[in-house]
Every structure is written in C-alpha cells, then in structure tokens.
Design a binder for these strands. Structure first.
Length: 125
DNA sequence: GCTATGACAAGGA
DNA sequence: CTCCTTGCCATAG
C-alpha cells in the first residue's frame, strides 16, 4: 500500500454526510496536486471494498463522471440524495454549495505541508 | 524499468 | 454549454 493510496482513502472518509469533494481536491489534500486521475482509480479499486464514501467525490465541474459498470451514475446519484445532496437528471451538482471545506486543523492531522494547506485555502475558500 | 491506462483539471475553440 | 487538447502521475501488466 502506497502512502498516497492510504491518504486518499483516509481523506475520503473525512468527507461528512451532505458534502462533496472534487477529485483534484482530494489529490491536493493527499499532497499530490496533479494526481486527480489516480484518486478516481483508487476509488474504483477500493471504494466498495472498504468503509469508503466514494460517492461523495465528483469532478471539478460538479458533475458525476463515473463510467464503471459496477457503479452506474444513477447509483451515485441515489447515494448522494440519501445524503441530502441535490442531483439533477444530468447528474449535475451544486458543488459550491456542498463542497467539503476542511478545517486547517484537519489538514494538520494529515501531516500536510503548509504550502498545500495554503493552496487549498486559496482555491476553495 | 517501461508502456498503457484513465471515476481528472484547466484552458481554448 | 459542449467538445477537444494537453498536462499529469500512481497503478497494472
């Protein structure tokens, strides 16, 4: 298990019910800003095997972009709605409204470089 | 160690 | 808004 993979799984577990995060955001919080693609890959492998709320991760444009036959987009939509998150027929979500905005203290717990914490604050707050 | 593969992101057309 | 291009990098084989 690579450190990156563990971080990603750990972070996704931090996303509270009723909130969502983008792949890029998770990658950034894991300390590798440009590894958004890998986040999706990791969730595909481990999302349903472990205690991971994988459905709370969507792409940056606020849309469900899942193509895995194992988990159709409709399934993610239903899971999100169960969390109280509104998803329209085109699988669009108001990410601005629901985005997971972690406290700096939580980011500290991830042993994240202050430089990344700064990036997150600038990008999403 | 090298190549192919993307549940992505950002910017342009 | 949609479609396309480029950059990116952890995994799998």
């Amino acid at each position: 298990m690579s450190a990156f993979k563990n971080k990603v799984l750990q972070i996704v577990k931090l996303i509270p019910k009723g909130q969502v995060a983008s792949y890029g955001q998770v990658a950034l919080m894991a300390g590798i800003p440009k590894a958004a693609l890998q986040v999706g890959y990791i969730l595909q492998l481990h999302g349903d095997k472990e205690d991971i709320p994988w459905w709370r991760v969507i792409n940056s444009s606020g849309r469900i972009s899942i193509k895995n036959p194992e988990h159709a987009p409709i399934e993610q939509k239903q899971l999100l709605e169960k969390d109280g998150v509104l998803v329209d027929e085109k699988f669009n979500i108001n990410i601005k409204k629901y985005r997971f905005l972690p406290d700096p203290n939580i980011l500290e717990d991830l042993e994240l470089n202050s430089i990344y914490i700064q990036m997150i604050l600038e990008k999403y707050y």
